[in-house]
Design a protein around this nucleic acid. Structure first.
Lengths: 235, 235
DNA sequence: AGGAATTTGTGCGTATGTATC
DNA sequence: AGATACATACGCACAAATTCC
């Protein structure tokens, strides 16, 4: 007797709200109706709705202001081009640019296969530079379900911009794991690092606001020219 | 007219609980009384207590299990002891510990000399482990002005706790730069890594809330056992 | 400037569902 | 199966912050 107990009401509500916001049905900055009105309309108690709203706020899609209202925030991620780019020259800074080498639709690798829903993914290979100096090689896997085909021309310097505006996928959080690795043997000729040479290594998984994995990437960077920067606290 | 508006009751409760757990008055794994009993005893409504308990859980000091009880968890330790520790085992997590090898008062190295006011600094050498496995070697430089002498016995697992409670120095922000380096030749015998071997490398500068540099450190970590983790956004 | 209306935040009490023991 | 304990949900009253007149 599988008692198919439904999800808690406040979870259903928060997921519904997240879908509405992500789909663009609620504009950025829009103010929701007062909680009591909203609760009446939805046929739930105010406390239940408040729990759902707190959930959406925790996911960064809503600003709740006492005495004022609940405001949709459609930019959990700064739409800035380099919001999540963490490599800098050794003396700090540097203007980041990207050059896409290839885009292919392939079966997803083991590390990413378990995550998304689709068995295939788009593999994007890019070179990254700082102030015109080649710094890193990126291998990015994007879940297949979003689009049948992705062309090199589709991609701008900011993949996150592409994800959001072309695929409707909003990246809300990322996790980077930084270690040491050797340059893979498919290093392109253009790259100044030699295959087999020791480099800094970054593995990234990113998620949508709804918590679904969206992207997996591996980056090899020349630690003699750039370093990965993590700032906590101010700044 | 200092309007001494008290903090919300559920905040007071959660802070009280956190203090109790941190002080060791509640043993690790101990089970709290049922929520209704506890609420009666504290003279608050169950809902209010539940909000406080959710707070403590969010800080990682409590396990709440439906149908069973609320269990104290000492793991992440309070006072954000490991708030700035970013190394994790390859499969995630691991309980961090530290072993101080030496503390010396020396002239500060070039990289740190320009920063603080004092010409001398305390150099602390530590080994870091995760779940008992040696992971990293740390060289930490603390500005000399704070105290004439620092003894090994003064230092707990958390240097930030020491800074704050013994020196009155509150670290408000840090910047980590992660790259690749070779293990220095003064590697202690106890360490499993051999001098000259390639490791992950972290340079950290930390500042007080006032913006004054407080600490400079270099960490060499075994990238085959641990990785540096950086999480952005929610999660 | 000031006070009333609006809106979210806090706190209480209770009834019912669900997981654990 | 029964008892225990946490989770969800409802509704209400008042406090605090904001907004509007």
């Amino acid at each position: 007797m599988a008692k198919t107990s439904a999800l808690p009401k406040f979870i259903q509500l928060s997921e519904m709200l997240i879908r509405e916001i992500a789909a663009g049905h609620l504009a950025d900055g829009a103010r929701l109706p007062p909680e009591r009105d909203m609760a009446d309309e939805l046929g739930v108690a105010v406390g239940t709705l408040r729990k759902a709203l707190a959930d959406v706020e925790a996911k960064g899609l809503l600003d709740r202001v006492q005495g004022s209202g609940n405001y949709v925030r459609h930019r959990p991620v700064v739409d800035s081009v380099y919001a999540f780019f963490r490599l800098e020259l050794l003396n700090g800074g540097g203007l980041p640019t990207a050059e896409v080498l290839s885009v292919d639709r392939l079966a997803k690798p083991d590390g990413f296969a378990r995550l998304g829903g689709d068995a295939e993914g788009h593999r994007i290979i890019r070179l990254r530079s700082l102030d015109g100096v080649l710094i890193a090689l990126e291998e990015i896997w994007l879940d297949g379900g979003h689009r049948d085909a992705v062309a090199v021309a589709d991609l701008s310097d900011s993949l996150y911009h592409f994800y959001r505006h072309e695929l409707g996928v909003v990246i809300a959080s990322v996790e980077d794991r930084i270690g040491v690795d050797v340059m893979p043997d498919w290093t392109p000729e253009a790259f100044h690092l030699k295959a087999g040479q020791t480099t800094g290594y970054i593995e990234r998984i990113s998620w949508t606001a709804a918590g679904a994995p969206a992207e997996f990437s591996r980056t090899w960077y020349d630690a003699s020219r750039a370093s990965y920067i993590s700032r906590m606290g101010k700044g």
